[in-house]
Write a protein that binds this DNA or RNA. Structure first.
Lengths: 211, 211
DNA sequence: TATGAAACATACCGGTCAGTCGGTATGTAA
DNA sequence: TTACATACCGACTGACCGGTATGTTTCATA
């Protein structure tokens, strides 16, 4: 009974404590500004203990990000597999993202910030995992939308990037301060993406278009 | 005749050589990963020479960014002062941005990446200069568009953020590789912002809507 | 052409930090 | 209780890097 389903071994417990501490610190400060001593301290171990579980600082960072991307990928894949219009599925996906705690949301943006730290193998893995977690899933929904005629024909890759950036702006610290209600925010993002910012002539109201 | 219009003094020449070298390096790697020795080497001077012109690494970085933002602000202000619809003016602004060399375009995105390095005075100056260079100018155009009824009523600050993110995606390395023609890209960006991604019923074609 | 200040080079210091290593504590199986 | 393995500690090091102190060159001006 050393390893049942919900029971974590001692090693797994401290490993996840270290990763949790690293998440908080790396979200708050740059890669270089977070020392291994800080991570170890926040996790309640010493640097020696940390290096017993991770061979290097970079590998710790990678493990952290890859774990996070994988869990996000699983979460968002539910929206991809869902039935419904592209708009409904994107609403579900965006809603899931907005519902995450702020720290988890910001993690997705760290790739852009810290990606230059890594080279070769590690860099490729990070980029690939990020794409699988977010852009690729959105792209799948958008491709369906284009095929169904719900969306105008366009390069789905570019549309997915644009949508991702929309969402990232909507969940940024600035938006948290400026826009109160996350639900309104979600509506706003979707409306902008689907309908654009242009003023529409109000078609069938009595006052037709006047104010 | 030590200081005429187009003649640079020796000090000014090396200062700008240092800043140019810093631009290239800081675009490619994180703030912490670029050493003062690297910058000096790339600029053809030594670290002592560099520190003759800049009191610290941070002040060098700030000078670099503030100079760049100021030149961008001047460039984009021409689009703000221009006559025409919001769409025409945004097209001009975006076109100017797309026409810049890739390195200059990417500089605008560095603030988001490296802003955590700075605190207090320096940080405020950087943020303010960036906002004056890009978001505030777009916001001015968008506010006009809303006032004229060209754009649907909305928070112009938020719209400008979204437009900036849209442009940043369009000028990213990914877009450079995927989409060939910058002019097509510009049309695409504007169409997305104004009209959205939704499929529009084609109003007056013979085959009305069928494929 | 003498001179002094600005422009640079060279060598060095102080501090930081990733990573190491010998040793200790905590289980665990025989 | 012995023997072994895994988990963890904490002091240490070696390299790196921002910044400085001091010496050397350049060059405009008198």
């Amino acid at each position: 009974m050393t390893e049942t389903t919900a029971t974590l071994s001692r090693s797994e417990t401290t490993t996840s404590k270290i990763i949790d501490a690293a998440k908080t610190l790396f979200v708050a400060r740059n890669y270089a500004d977070v020392t291994t001593d800080m991570i170890a301290g926040a996790a309640g171990v010493t640097k020696g203990g940390l290096y017993h579980h991770f061979p290097s600082k970079e590998s710790l960072y990678c493990s952290m990000m890859l774990d996070d991307f994988e869990s996000k990928r699983q979460l968002f894949s539910q929206s991809v597999d869902m039935k419904g219009t592209a708009r409904q599925r994107l609403a579900r996906l965006t809603g899931d993202f907005l519902a995450l705690p702020a720290e988890e949301r910001q993690l997705a943006g760290l790739v852009r910030r810290d990606i230059n730290v890594f080279t070769g193998e590690d860099r490729d893995r990070l980029v690939r995992a990020y794409q699988l977690a977010l852009p690729k899933q959105i792209e799948a929904i958008i491709s369906d939308g284009i095929a169904d005629g719900e969306l105008a024909p366009a390069d789905p890759r570019l549309l997915s990037w644009w949508f991702v950036s929309l969402v990232e702006v909507a969940v940024s610290r600035y938006a948290d301060e400026t826009l109160g209600n996350p639900d309104k925010r979600l509506d706003h993002v979707l409306a902008l993406f689907f309908e654009g910012a242009e003023a529409k002539p109000v078609p069938a109201t009595p006052n037709g278009g006047i104010q």
